[in-house]
Amino acid sequence: MPPTAKKILLIEDEAFIADIYAHELTKAGFSVRVARDGTSGLQILESEPFDMLLLDIMLPGMHGLEILRQWRTKSPNSTMPVILLTNLGQDEVIKEAFALGARGYLIKASYTPKQVVSEVTNVLGSNAASAIPPANEEARNG
């Protein structure tokens, strides 16, 4: 049984940007789920396990830092790495993100998709097996 790919949740409202990141991450062997607004992003985050969260800040519905805050309150013991992927660069925002336990903070405009994939790979390791037990896989195949 091939190891299941690591699951990444990308919450990004700009279609072009979401598409290219998802495209490159999938090419690198990750399984990517995209949410295009804050509220549904948080819902998905709370309903399924992921190996990593890539989070924009300026989102409709609920902004990224609020999502992170809610996530920390709901699942304080979660070790899932969170990387902020945003074009906001204010010191206060960065400080707040790290105070909320973010693993990294990348300014989108300064990173090519290849560099983003490489950062993600550094944190997650490449196509090694996902930390999430493949219960669904067995149910589907069984």
Binding site: E14, I17, I20, N87, T112, P113, K114
Partner: peptide, 14 residues
């Protein structure tokens, strides 16, 4: 301004 700029850089570099 950075938002569309990101798209431009992303697609061109890919």
């Amino acid at each position: 301004i950075r938002t569309p700029l990101t798209s431009i850089i992303n697609y061109l570099s890919v």
